[in-house]
Amino acid sequence: MFWKRDVLNDADAKKVGDELQKVLVHLVDLSLTTKQAHWNLHGRTFFGVHEKLDEIVAAVREYVDEVAERMDQLGIAPDGRAQTVTASSTFEPYPDTFLTVGQTLTHMADRLSILSKVLRDASTAVADPDPPTEDLLIAITQTVEKYLWMLQAAQEADGE
């Protein structure tokens, strides 16, 4: 910790900071991966998915900033460096080639599902020591699960 805001005691600040850091690396990874998916998407229903991926990127980037700023508010230095994200994210590496709409929907839905679990676990862990952080994580979870539903619905409709 760089400074202590005295909002949380040291033990609670560490616990909340660790959970927020897990969320942060997954959000940073998702923002980069979603843009990769956006660039390398091909198929019959390209346009709608292409546009939806850009919408997801915008939302996730906003949440990256909100999570990092919450960490700052608690006196915890956020770490969104590439090497930290690579070492800490539990997402599988994203393919480095063109993918069909169906493949893209599967890869992205898998990531959103993993992120939903990370967020739900973090929300539970911070509920007692820091309800404001819990509220932030719940709001992010609602958006992530909305996008997960949309991608799964598109996948089913596409017959993939």
Rank of each mutant, 00 (worst) to 15 (best):
F2R: 12
F2V: 12
W3R: 12
W3H: 12
D10R: 12
A11Q: 14
D12I: 03
V16C: 02
V16P: 00
L20V: 02
V25E: 00
S31C: 05
K35W: 13
Q36E: 14
H38Q: 12
N40K: 06
H42K: 14
R44S: 12
R44H: 12
F46K: 09
V49N: 09
E51C: 09
K52N: 13
K52Q: 15
D54H: 14
I56K: 01
A58P: 01
V60S: 10
E62L: 13
Y63Q: 15
Y63S: 15
E66A: 14
L74S: 02
G75E: 05
G75S: 02
A77H: 07
D79E: 08
G80F: 06
Q83E: 14
S89D: 01
T90H: 08
E92D: 14
D96I: 00
D96S: 06
F98Q: 11
Q103S: 07
R111T: 02
L112E: 08
S116W: 01
K117S: 13
K117P: 00
V118Y: 01
L119K: 05
S123Y: 08
A125V: 06
V126Y: 01
D128L: 10
P129A: 10
D130W: 05
P132S: 06
D135W: 03
L136G: 01
I138P: 01
A139K: 14
A139D: 15
T141W: 12
V144R: 09
E145R: 10
E145V: 10
Y147Q: 14
Y147L: 07
W149I: 08
W149N: 12
M150P: 01
M150N: 04
M150S: 11
M150L: 15
L151G: 03
A153E: 11
A153P: 02
A157P: 01
D158A: 14
D158E: 15
